[in-house]
């Protein structure tokens, strides 16, 4: 075996495999520390839960060259200003409902999940909710009875009734309002938001 050059030898590649793996793992860990900090709710890119007390716009940033969420003035959800704790509890209840009902096995959220139904990341801002004065009510109504309130836009595909309680439906709306304020680096591109008071 002495005729095997060093670069083809077993021991050289064993060492390389170990060093490469260790090195990449360390870089990943370092980046993870930074990312976890940045995506903590209330840091720069992921909003604090009280954002559900505010109006959320989705506007073009000419420097970044894509749209980004812009937090506006007070616009309390269901007419009630919430404390940071109350807001977190409500968003969390919505998230828990989304998991327990497995919404992500038909929909995508942040683009991940299933492809049977529309992406929900910006559902709060979807133009199909007509306008901001009726949006909250329409969303709750839809979630409570998606069969009767089906739209489909010409398709017969409907969302089934998942038997949410009214409280769960409202919490889901809070959760979706919060997700619409996450800075997703321009995803989905070219999205047309619903018309809102204070639009430019």
């Amino acid at each position: 075996m002495s005729n095997v050059p060093w670069w083809a030898s077993e021991s050289f590649w064993r060492k390389t495999a170990i060093w490469v793996t260790a090195g990449m793992t360390l870089v990943l860990i370092a980046l993870t520390f930074d990312t976890v900090k940045v995506i903590t709710a209330g840091h720069s890119r992921v909003p604090a839960y009280e954002v559900i007390n505010k109006r959320i716009y989705y506007r073009m940033n000419t420097k970044r060259k894509f749209q980004e969420p812009v937090i506006g003035e007070d616009a309390p959800l269901f007419g009630k200003m919430l404390s940071p704790e109350e807001a977190e509890a409500m968003v969390s209840h919505g998230k828990m409902t989304v998991q327990a009902k497995n919404c992500g096995s038909c929909h995508t959220l942040l683009g991940n999940g299933a492809y049977y139904a529309p992406d929900l990341t910006k559902a709060w801002l979807d133009p199909a909710w007509a306008g901001e004065s009726v949006r909250e009510t329409l969303m709750v109504q839809f979630l409570l009875d998606p069969t009767t309130n089906a739209r489909g836009f010409g398709s017969t595909r409907r969302m089934p009734n998942l038997h949410l309680t009214e409280e769960e439906a409202r919490a889901v709306v809070a959760f979706l309002k919060w997700t619409s304020a996450i800075d997703t680096t321009g995803f989905p591109r070219n999205f047309t938001p619903v018309a809102q008071e204070g639009d430019l």
Binding site: A117, P118, D119, K122, A123, D126, P127, A128, R151, G152, F153, G154, S155, R157, P188, R189, N190, F191, T192
Partner: peptide
């Protein structure tokens, strides 16, 4: 859905059909 319609609810269904 994505390039033309900007990934809205109605855009999603336009593509699906």
């Amino acid at each position: 859905e994505r390039a033309l319609e900007g990934a809205t609810w109605s855009g999603f269904f336009k593509a699906q059909q």
